[in-house]
Design a protein around this nucleic acid. Structure first.
Length: 227
DNA sequence: GCGACAG
DNA sequence: ATCTTGTCGC
């Protein structure tokens, strides 16, 4: 159901991958969302066989009704190592394979990783968002680049994540006193819009439901795949 | 050369 | 991410 509007070679060297990121970063669009998304898809991956196999999963979350609508997974051979800044080249192929299995079309995609809060402003949220041409958000558990102050301790409190002169993301407290998350634009959304959506998706945990449930999904799938 | 470094 | 038990704090 979710098919890429464009493709490119994935068999690249780290140097070629970096060049491709610089090239594709120009196609990222930062525009206001037409309306609050009803269905938000969250993606995550788990690894097997000493990292030789990757399990990608998507969960579609109904924001208003606060319930899970669909889950899909795909298992593939890993073809790219984990290199800080090149995460999407390791996880995207499997994520696209799983996305093709979705029967419902989500309004927005959410990732466990960064979007524009990336050295070349092209984290995994930007990469998948551009390939599938859908609004997307990066919601990472830790920082990749940029500097920031400590946000206040209340839910919803946030500060800017800055890299040089650029505001590349926002450090957002999703639960009172808990470690904040790093939100950034993936594609076709504004930073304020991204923060709003992340908060709407955070019910009782630090991480937004789409991404949290996707993690539960791939972890469970991994367990009953190699018993 | 010495740290930092999404998952 | 992954390998792992109990344990301290809200």
């Amino acid at each position: 159901m979710l098919t890429p509007v464009m493709t490119h070679d994935w068999n690249l060297s780290p140097t070629q991958a970096v060049a491709l990121q610089r090239e594709l970063a120009a196609s990222v669009r930062e525009v206001k969302l037409a309306r609050i998304p009803a269905l938000v898809a969250g993606a995550d991956c788990a690894f097997c066989s000493h990292g030789e196999e990757i399990i990608a999963g998507w969960v579609v979350w109904d924001v208003k009704r606060r319930k899970l609508v669909e889950e899909v997974v795909a298992v593939e051979r890993t073809t790219f190592p984990y290199v800080p800044g090149l995460l999407s080249f390791r996880e995207t192929p499997a994520m696209l394979a799983a996305a093709a299995k979705l029967s419902v079309k989500p309004d927005l995609l959410m990732f466990d990783g960064h979007g524009r809060a990336h050295p070349r402003r092209f984290g995994i949220a930007c990469h998948v968002g551009v390939l599938l041409d859908l609004p997307s958000i990066g919601c990472a558990k830790s920082r990749l680049c940029g500097e920031h102050k400590e946000p206040a301790s209340s839910r919803g409190a946030c500060v800017s994540l800055v890299d040089g002169e650029e505001k590349i993301g926002r450090v957002l407290r999703t639960r009172e006193r808990l470690k904040p998350v790093f939100v950034s634009v993936g594609h076709k959304i504004t930073l304020d819009g991204a923060v709003d959506v992340v908060l709407r998706c955070c019910t009782t945990y630090r991480l937004p439901e789409p991404t949290r449930l996707a993690h539960v999904l791939v972890t469970r799938e991994k367990a009953n795949h190699a018993p």
